[in-house]
Write a protein that binds this DNA or RNA. Structure first.
Lengths: 343, 343
DNA sequence: CTGAAAGCGCTAACAG
DNA sequence: CTGTTAGCGCTTTCAG
């Protein structure tokens, strides 16, 4: 059996309470005694048993992250920020991977009830009022990233503002017939980004006719919706093909609701023998890794930073459970590359 | 306070042992009694406390993964496989993120000593004999992915074989002057891939002269080595530039030790106004996500599958601690795309 | 300051 | 089959 606090106590000729004080930097211990204990600890190669500490302290030292994992880079960057920041604290991260949204609630229950962790971060997932309520009542802080709920702390990007800026960029380049390609129309980011697009158009006196907007669900192919709420390459490609077919309005620019959508659209454009940005200007949203390699102009979301902030914030909540709900919104920034050009 | 096993016992009018048997599917309980207990559990909304169970059972239900995290897609795919497989078991994953190799040992100690997890997976990291020894002696199974150690279980790809196949492919296309670009020469994958390259050349009666091989450390720029052992885009670009400069041998093809190296090299080639595969054929290794978007011919490593296998294997070790060391080697497969062409 | 003792919530061996 | 009891390894009063 591994060495326990009792072994240390015996060797140091003190009580286990004293050993505990020594390892926990308690002020209630005489420096000399502490030295003796520390020496015994080193001699025996003792390390406290994390689980046992957890039970006694009623805290686990674990943070849970529940992530949908289909879109690589976005979550990878988030994770990098999270891990980096977490390493400053003595905290471990348990990762829950959601591939079908239905399993999300299992994890919420798991984290909530089984007390495996001290707090949870969710990403890009709607939280029902029911769970929002449950978490508020419990002592497990919850922080929502990339979505919102008015009763819960969240961090997200200003989708509408970003979409507005993207569309504006196209307009300033001289484009007038600007189409938008989107994931599932009913998803939160879709709705918000659509609003930004619409507002930019209207403010410039441009009208958004229905045939200028194609969302994943309008494609009459349920399969396309499966992956990531319709924010996937296939949707981008199909939507663009349709735009290409029925374009009688002289569309010259596309605002894609995400980079991956934009990339699908680019593929369709090139396969049609057209070129970018000569025939079509196109702008994405997210700034995933691929975007820079494919020289896609896009709205950058500060993913790494969001990951850092999420951790900092939840650590704050660990300190002060009663800290009032805080909703943080960050602005995306335009990254101009080669897929947009003056008309 | 949350509801405990005692509350359930009281309500069900049984002892806590019986409650425990009910939740743990023990055969030693009468079906009717079990029904009563289960009913009380539902009524009270009881869920066992994972930490307390862990302490009593001497197992945590947690698997630790220690990963270097700089190269997105590779680890993302691995993680997908791991998470997918793990979800079949009642296991959670703690992720440790290594950005500097020096911190690796901290995590090894942490997992080894603090008993936060039942087993650990390491990725792309050399394990010293010292730690190999420590783990073998301990009851914490360790599984090494993407590296090898003869005393420890590991899963990796046949680097030499893959490099051989890659080089052979180039040779079959008619190329004779084939250069290789590599990460740090001393790293295990570099050495193994170099051997495959060399063997393919020799078997075809081609000679490998020193100026045909450029590794990250030969670039006289320590900064380039920092990231991922020299397997990064900058090294690919710099190495290719050098090749372009001093090429008096009529090199027509490049075998890059990794996709990201290949991508850097492609950039250098294009910036020199040359084209691929017209002027240079180039093949990578890994098949990261970018490779398909950039149409890079490469050797594919089955990352997702490796992740699955790693979990399956470590679960086996949980069952049978004495299971003898097993070393698994998988073959990479050639994925032909647009960057290689007949001479 | 320090030792003893009482939990933390659960599992498992032991009687019955 | 079931209740009781002794831990699992540590933290935290509570006396002294």
């Amino acid at each position: 059996m591994a060495v326990t606090i009792y072994d240390v106590a015996r060797v140091a000729k003190v009580g286990i309470g004293t050993v505990s004080r020594a390892i926990n930097n308690s002020p209630q211990i005489r420096p000399e005694t502490k030295k003796i204990v520390l020496h015994a600890i080193k001699e025996l190669g003792y390390t406290p048993h994390a689980i046992a500490q957890g039970l006694a302290r009623k805290k686990t030292g674990i943070l849970a992250a529940i992530m949908p994992f289909y879109t690589g880079h976005f979550y990878h960057e988030l994770l990098r920020g999270i891990m980096k920041t977490l390493s400053k604290y003595e905290y471990d991260l348990i990762l829950y991977y959601v591939d079908r949204l239905e399993v999300k609630n299992n994890f919420l229950n798991r984290t909530l009830q089984e007390r495996r962790c001290d707090g949870v971060l969710t990403f890009s997932m709607e939280i029902s009022d029911e769970y929002a309520e449950k978490f508020s009542k419990s002592k497990v802080p919850l922080l929502i990233v990339d979505r919102a709920h008015d009763k819960i702390d969240c961090i997200q990007v200003k989708n509408e503002e970003g979409a507005f800026a993207a569309t504006k960029h196209l307009i300033e380049l001289g484009h007038k017939n600007i189409a938008m390609i989107s994931g599932h129309k009913e998803s939160a980011p879709s709705r918000e980004r659509y609003r930004g697009y619409e507002r930019a158009m209207q403010e410039s006196g441009l009208t958004v006719t229905p045939d200028l907007f194609i969302s994943a669900d309008a494609l009459d192919n349920p399969d396309l919706l499966q992956q990531n709420d319709g924010f996937n390459e296939h949707v981008g490609e199909s939507a663009m093909k349709r735009l290409l077919q029925m374009d009688r309005k002289g569309i010259t620019a596309i605002f894609a609701g995400s980079d991956i959508l934009a990339i699908g659209a680019m593929k369709a454009i090139r396969e049609a023998g057209l070129s970018i940005p000569k025939d079509y200007s196109i702008i994405g949203f997210d700034d995933i890794e691929l975007a820079s390699y494919l020289s896609l102009t896009t709205m950058q979301q500060p993913m790494y930073e969001i990951g850092c902030m999420a951790v900092e914030r939840i650590m704050e909540k660990f300190e002060d459970k009663e800290s009032p709900v805080r909703q943080v919104q960050l602005s995306p920034t335009l990254v101009e590359r080669q897929t947009t050009a003056p008309l």
